[in-house]
């Protein structure tokens, strides 16, 4: 039982890491109705800029963080100006296609600027069972159940970061004027424009915020695997999360991540051996697709009702 719980908790926490990437997709989708294929590339660009600024330009961590954030904002603003603005009111498929092109551009730009080496990324977050971290901090762990002692400190911090991001974004979307404008734009570009919503500004803001989320995701994933090109593949982990949680739901990204993380880990450990292993990557997609049959808009996605 304790091994089962260990796998389950490990899966839930791994799912949070997927949610961090999924959040970026959700933001863009909410604001423009576009599935941003370039989100993985943005994660890579952000993380590589962060470490590149330290390695090549000699920036301290705080300056590298600010520098990366500024570059992500510039990238967001330029994306709006050069890529999206000419496509206002075009079919969603055109916007989707342009994000595929953007992926190659961003991947290439990142490598052009900072090279293709692998950089280790040390954020100072311990990557060890929490019992060890607590003991190191001089805290007594006797009262902590054994299964919880095995939880990884890094995963726990990632969960806290993701939770904070979700709370902040939920407030942003629900309460602020800009957040409401974002939702209006997502519903209908032309209608939003006709009531005076500044579409260009809104898109620039949302791409910048998505850039910030990509930076956070890039730092967490980079600290885990090293900053390297393979970061673009973390987007693959986010897709089933989005399908399950709903493309336009911030809380859905978190809940979807938790479910997918837990399901795929349990499946790999308990069912995998009967299939020769290596099933988690497709199992997550199968689970998401099955869910689609029951609820096409995802767990928390907005139900689309079209008037005929």
């Amino acid at each position: 039982m304790s091994f089962f719980l260990e796998v389950l908790i490990g899966g839930l926490l791994a799912g949070i890491m997927y949610s961090l990437v999924a959040l970026g997709f959700v933001l863009i989708y909410k604001a423009s109705g576009v599935f941003n294929f370039a989100q993985g590339a943005m994660v890579f660009f952000a993380a590589l800029t962060f470490v590149g600024a330290q390695e090549k330009l000699g920036f301290p961590i705080w300056a590298a963080l600010i520098f990366s954030l500024i570059l992500m904002i510039i990238l967001g603003v330029l994306t709006e100006k050069v890529v999206l603005r000419p496509l206002v009111n075009q079919p969603p498929i055109s916007l989707f296609m342009v994000t595929i092109g953007l992926t190659f551009f961003v991947e290439g730009l990142a490598q052009l600027m900072w090279g293709t080496k692998v950089y280790p990324l040390e954020l100072g977050i311990p990557d060890e069972p929490i019992a060890i971290t607590l003991t190191r901090w001089g805290l007594n762990t006797d009262a902590v159940p054994n299964v919880l002692k095995e939880i990884n400190s890094f995963d726990l911090i990632a969960a806290i970061v993701a939770g904070t991001l979700v709370a902040a974004l939920a407030i942003f979307f629900q309460i602020t004027r800009v957040g409401r404008a974002l939702r209006a734009v997502a519903d209908d570009h032309q209608a939003a424009l006709s009531v005076g919503i500044p579409l260009k500004t809104i898109w620039a803001i949302v791409w910048s915020v998505a850039g910030f989320v990509a930076l956070v995701a890039g730092l967490m994933w980079g600290a885990r695997n090293g900053v390297q090109f393979a970061l673009v593949f973390v987007a693959l982990k986010a897709l089933p999360v989005l399908i399950l949680g709903g493309f336009d739901s911030v809380p859905g990204a978190i809940v979807g991540g938790l479910i997918i993380g837990a399901l795929e880990k349990l499946a790999e450990v308990y069912i995998g051996p009967y299939f020769g292993g290596g099933i988690e990557i497709w199992f997550a997609y199968v689970a998401a697709l099955l869910f689609l049959l029951v609820r096409p808009e995802g767990l928390f996605g907005e139900k689309q009702i079209d008037r005929v």
Partner: peptide, 21 residues
Amino acid sequence: VMIPVPHPGNEQQSQWMRIKK
């Protein structure tokens, strides 16, 4: 015991849980 890691292998929690077991 042979345990595969699906490409690209940037997340291996479950494989290492199996190894632990």
